[in-house]
Each structure stands twice: as C-alpha cells, then as structure tokens.
Design a protein around this nucleic acid. Sequence first.
DNA 1: GTGAAAGCGCTAACAA
DNA 2: TTGTTAGCGCTTTCAC
Lengths: 338, 338
Amino acid sequence: MTTTHNGRVTMQQVAAEAGVSVSTVSKVINGRYGVASETSEHVNAVISRLGYEASLVARSLRNTRTNVIGLLVMDFEPFSTEVLKGAADAIRGSGFELVAYSAGGGVDDHIGWESRALSRVMGTLVDGAVLVTPTVTDVRHTGPVVAVDPHTGRSSLPTVTSDNLQGGRLAVDHLLGLGHRRIGMITGRPDLSSAELREQGYRDAHAAAGVPVDESLLVLGGYDPEQAREASRTLLTMAEPPSAIFAANDISALATLEVAAELGIDVPGRLSVVGFDNIPESALADPPLTTVQQPMRQLGHDAVAMLIALISGAEIEDTHLTLETTMVARGSSAAVGR
Amino acid sequence: MTTTHNGRVTMQQVAAEAGVSVSTVSKVINGRYGVASETSEHVNAVISRLGYEASLVARSLRNTRTNVIGLLVMDFEPFSTEVLKGAADAIRGSGFELVAYSAGGGVDDHIGWESRALSRVMGTLVDGAVLVTPTVTDVRHTGPVVAVDPHTGRSSLPTVTSDNLQGGRLAVDHLLGLGHRRIGMITGRPDLSSAELREQGYRDAHAAAGVPVDESLLVLGGYDPEQAREASRTLLTMAEPPSAIFAANDISALATLEVAAELGIDVPGRLSVVGFDNIPESALADPPLTTVQQPMRQLGHDAVAMLIALISGAEIEDTHLTLETTMVARGSSAAVGR
DNA sequence: GTGAAAGCGCTAACAA
DNA sequence: TTGTTAGCGCTTTCAC
C-alpha cells in the first residue's frame, strides 16, 4: 500500500485495498452507472473503513464545477465577518459550500489583492466569488463575481451595496437636528464608492440646511482605526474644534471615542459622535455609539444569492442592488451645548 | 494560444506568450536559479501584462507545503466568526494565508463533519487546521490540528478552550447572589466539553450555596436557537417557573429573552437571564444581556499560534490551553422579587 | 540556461 | 462491468 507524504488516504489506497482500479472507485463515489452493486458495496465498505474523502483540491483541478463559492476579503474585520454571516445564511441548503479566503493583508497587497486572490481560486477552487470592498472596478473576467461595497466608478461587476448617500445624509441630518453646526467628518477609503457617497451625503445635508461646509473639518480616516485616530486628534485639537464628528464607519467612530476619552472630552456632553455600519461592537462602546445601520448580513446574503443565480446561468434583471440604511440613535450623540 | 475552459490565465499561456517553456516560467515565479536575467525579466513582463497568478489548487496538489491554514467550522455563526477574527489576528504577518471553510451544515452532516472537511482539505489545500466545536474527540491524524471548544472526553488533539467550569459557577453565583433560589438552566450541546462543564458549574454553585438542584429545571438547548426557544417555553410555562435562567450560550439566552417577551414576562423584573459567551450581539439585546465573557478572539488567536508552532515542528509544552472567563453584568439580571 | 517529462489526486473517454 | 489512459495546472528532476 503506497502511502502519501502525509497521512491522507487517497483514492489509490482505497483502490489497492479494495482490489479494484482507481476509476472504479471514482465511479462508485460519483454514483456513475456501470458498477456491479457487489463491487460498489465492497468499495464503499473500504471507503468508510479507511475514512476516505475525496480531496477538494484534486477534484477541483479536474472538474470545471466545484460547487464551492468563495468569499474574498482583504481581512476578517467586523464588517466583512458580518457579510460572511449573511453569505452563510444564503449558502445553507443551496448545495454549495462556502470558502472564505483572506488574501493575507500584506502591506504591498493593499491594491489589487482581489485580482490576485481571484486568480488563485477562481476556475479551480470556486465556481464564483463575492468580493468584499475590492480596490478595483474591474477584474479580468474569470467567472461569476459579485462585489459588495464596491470601488468607485461605474463598475462592470454586479454589485450589492447600501444606500450610502442616504446614510450619510441621515447621519448629518441627525446631528444638524441636534443643533450642531460645526460638524467634522472622518472620511473613508477614497477608492470606495461607499466612502465617496457618505461624504456626499454629508455635503448634501449641509447644503439642504444652508450650513456652509468648512473643508478643514474633513479629514481622511480611510476606514482604518489608526488613521482614524490621527484624524480624530487633528480635529479635536484644532483651534476651533467641531462639536460633532461623523465618522465614515464604526471602526473610525470607535477610534474617535477613544481619542476623545484620552483628551478628556466628554461624549456626548462636549462632543457628539456618529458612526456608520452598526457593527455589533458599536453597542458595546462607552457611550454606546449612535450610528447608521446598514444591513451587512443582508448584503452578504443578497450577494451570494445573486452569485448563485449567475453561476446557474440565470438572467439577472438588475445587477446593482442597493439596500436601505436607517438611523440608530444611542448615547454618543446629544443636543449641542447640552 | 490554448485557452482554458474558463477565463483563467494559466502558466501554459504565459509560456506560449513569452516563447519559453512552462518550466522556465515556473522557475521565474519561484525564483529558482538557472534563469538568464533577461529571460526572467521578459517572463515577468508577460506575467504582469496577462495578470497571471498561480492557481492555489494546482500548486497545492503538487507541493507538500501550501502556507495556508484552514479554519473549519460547521457554520459561520457569532461564536465561530469571533474565533475567526482572532485567527486572522494571529495570521497577520505570519506568512500564512487563512481559509475558512464551512462544511455546509447539511442535516446528516451534523456528526463527523470535521473529519470529512479535514480529509477534503488537509494535506492538499492546507498545512494544518483549526477545528471549531468538533463533534468528535479524535480525527484520523492527517496533519497538525488544533481544536477550539472541543468535544467531551480526553482528546488526543491539542485544544484551546475557556474555563467553562469557572464560567458556569460565575453565572450561577451571580444569580444566587441576587437572591435567586429557583434557577433554570438551558443546557448546551451534550457532546461538547464546554456544555458539560458549564452545567457542572451550575451544580457546583448550587452545592456550594447549599441550594438543592431541581432536575426538572435543566432543559436541553443544544446551543441552538430553536431548541432553546422550546426549552425556554418549557421552563417558563411550568407550574412553578424559575425566577432566573442560566442559558449555556448567548444564542440560547437571546432566545429566552424573546420567549419571555412573547409570554409577557418582564425581564429582569420577573425573570433574570444570564448567558454565556458575550457575543457582540448580546449587548444589543433588550434588555442588554448579562453574560459570562469568554475570550473568543483569543481562543482563535491562540489556536492559530499553536497550530503554526506545530506546523513548524516546534515542541509544544502544553497542548491544552484554558483561558479565563469573566462576569459581565448588564440589564437582564436583577435581585429576585424586585 | 533551457526544456522535456513525470507525477501530485482525481475524473472521464474509451478499450477491453 | 472493469481497467487503461490522458490530462486538469503546476513543480521538479534530469537531459540537453
């Protein structure tokens, strides 16, 4: 009995043990016709005795179809894991399996990680992929792909996203309604359409209220906690600091809360903070974060549903889904000067 | 130029385009010696022009080492995704990539999914795997494996888990301290050591306080929301219902909260509820859930760290890590009869 | 310095 | 009904 480098049981070994050829074993496993029921039973017995299971990799290499869907993320942070939960909801009972793949998040990988990840898995490991916050508009078309929270610009990819413009307005209208007139913004990842639109919502809200925008109050946060800390510090140590800050995502808002605490600034007494996403962690903050809720799980769910339809060759009427956002008022925002 | 069934660019195509052989392309990619720098440059140019990236699958099939670590879960629910976040933390900068694989969660897959998943990926796709809440004590040893929140019984696998006995005691001591004497328990998945120990903690706390345990007050919840709803209903519609319920995990506690609301039972006025895990969602509940915090991300982090050490062939002193739990009092528990 | 050939574990067309 | 063979995309001897 030949043994592989590692302990894995291969089809070879099953065949040898059962005294048949590999192809017979293959036929038994895949339920192909033309195998004597006796042989079949015997082979199955050997299979379960040896605990054999076909290698996903070898099978993928050979077959066009793998029945595996990939969810490609740059990193497993709160947003992408919420999307993942939704994707898992949609996978259940679909006959597909889900593989979530993190490209590693190497520094130089920041741009184009999705093309690389896609090339590595598409067509071999997975039948299609969901890309979460990709850094490019287009990927060389290698198979069915759906983007969640896509890159700016007209994308040729099917996309699923939240109504970020509306969300941005919601957040800033909330603050304006509380009497704030000097509202800082920690902006998001400039390459993502979501960040662009949230900022546009900020501007629209100001325009609608007739409040001029002070450009110095917009600081880049890049959806990144470290950058957002910097940005917060910049805003809060200005000569004339804002009385409220709208952060483009919850991670950034949470960073703002930390910086405010470090600087001894009372929230919401002297500073109101509003985030975006409503990641589960936001409710745990002190004070609990006021934020714009976007349906992250639904994003994942709908993206997978669309992808499965695409893989099945269905005609999709609308390949650009936009989901609603809602305001969630918690303890981090209050009327100005209260 | 040969084209594959799907749009993927293969090494074949790169070789053809560059006018060299596949093996030369392979050498260039892997930085092997014995390639003219001129050729190398040319090939690299073609590679980036075509956007080629080696297929993870084909490469895995050929190589023993893949530098990919697998995290195998039955389903992506709050607990496993928290573990995943921690695993991602540990992966960063390690040189490994992370693939999270959900076995699909088919009904008949409930037992033994991990053996199957493991066979499918180990030795080909991944160099080692973290198993989250496996249903078996032992897996045929196919390579480095670490279990998080393992099965009951002495496991031959390295494990990382929380101090569930202490956690169970913490929860019930908390309730006893509030004056509760009739405390129901919604138990967890009977095959998991965590569930067993949490229940033991419940019993120990009672014994220490000299309060007898009413066996009819322990109902199976299986860590499952649906089962936990049933269990809650059973407990709350008893002739003499408990004044407090300790649920073996937050998912179950959240279900209890729902059932209580449906039955018009005020929490914490007439019923106190304590969970276990402190998943982010627990703080969002109404009322916010009192719970035992276990370091889920740390579990994932430590499991991956141990796994990497194992893969590197390091000698591990202690292969059974146990992490501390702490009590988090929120709004769902209060003094009895208040 | 380069390419031809074998083989990783599997499936499918074809022969026996 | 069964086995032989070729080949999926890649890496690695080993000739040239």
